[in-house]
């Protein structure tokens, strides 16, 4: 059983190595244009650059000729530049990328916390009070479908190009979905928990803290999980468009585009996926799983 799994894992890794090798190889043979689509080596080069390192294998796609005119998107005739070592130009910990990741995660933490508090509060209110549900339910359902970058123009006009604007986009992009998932999840909690709670004397606030809240934990966990991924996507969208002094991961993507550094563009996308996946895999999926197993669902 275990060796079966190991074998499959190795096979998957092997196929990926082949795909990457084929990708890199075909790039060099066909001489694809680097600004159209990067080779793996470009991506790695750009990422290492962002980590404060210079490599010998990167293909400089942004050239400056002797007269100082930029000749974008041309292949360096001497590429790959043999005989150079990997140069570390600065501390990794102060590198552009890690700094950007730190800034983005900080914004995410604040934005997600705000939409969590708002979302849980309003989701609960919609569940509890029919009137509030009738009032806000359809609006929230509608707004939830709005792509989060569509909040950017409003944020710019109403709040200006600043941290508040970015926070606004992050919150708007995630809080409707948190409220709606929570409400729907609570509606699906078995009525028998409610009946049992009432029969055994849970009244008023205790009914909510001792019965509805724990009974709603699976709903809460999935609402957290999807809410987080909404918040992350919204923040990245916001950062891509807002240009602020504090540069987050989204900015690196925008910068990559501006400089025609397609390696950086794809590399940063890769980093975004990595962060989103890591959060899901190491925080939210285990949380959901833990709650579910306590409830005797799934594993």
């Amino acid at each position: 059983m275990k060796s079966e799994k190991l074998k499959r894992g190795l096979l998957v890794a092997l196929v990926w190595v082949l795909i990457v090798a084929f990708w890199e190889g075909s790039y060099r043979i066909i001489e694809w244009k680097a600004y159209v689509f990067p080779a793996p080596s470009h991506i790695l080069d750009s990422l290492l650059n962002l980590f404060g390192m210079k490599t010998w294998f990167g293909d400089p796609v942004w050239l400056v000729d002797a007269a100082g005119h930029s000749q974008a998107f041309q292949r360096d005739p001497q590429w790959p530049l043999h005989g150079q070592d990997l140069q570390v130009t600065g501390s990794i910990w102060n590198s552009q990328l890690l700094e950007a990741v730190g800034i983005s995660l900080f914004r995410l933490l604040i934005g997600f916390s705000i939409s969590l508090v708002l979302g849980l509060f309003i989701g609960l209110a919609m569940f509890r009070f029919k009137f509030i549900d009738a009032l806000l339910g359809p609006v929230f359902l509608g707004l939830q479908t709005l792509p989060s970058v569509c909040w950017v123009p409003l944020a710019v006009l109403a709040l200006g190009i600043n941290e508040t604007g970015i926070l606004f986009v992050t919150v708007m992009g995630s809080f409707f979905s948190i409220a709606i998932t929570l409400r729907d999840g609570l509606r699906l909690t078995p009525t028998i928990y409610r009946s049992a709670g009432l029969v055994f004397g849970a009244h008023g606030i205790k009914f909510y803290t001792q019965v509805m809240l724990p009974a709603g934990l699976p709903a809460l966990a999935s609402s957290l999980r999807s809410g987080f991924s909404f918040a992350w996507r919204s923040l990245m969208g916001g950062e891509l468009i807002f240009v602020l002094k504090q540069e987050g991961v989204g900015h690196l993507l925008a910068v990559g585009r501006e400089f025609g550094d397609v390696g950086q563009v794809v590399g940063v996308m890769f980093i975004m996926v990595l962060i989103g996946m890591a959060a899901d895999r190491f925080i939210f999926a285990p949380l959901e799983k833990k709650v579910q197993s306590r409830f005797g669902l799934g594993g």
Partner: peptide, 18 residues
């Protein structure tokens, strides 16, 4: 309303899994 003078065993136990 429900009260402590009546207690109930439900068909699907209705115990709290948490």
């Amino acid at each position: 309303s429900p009260g402590p003078d009546r207690a109930m065993v439900f068909q699907e136990h209705g115990l709290f899994p948490w």
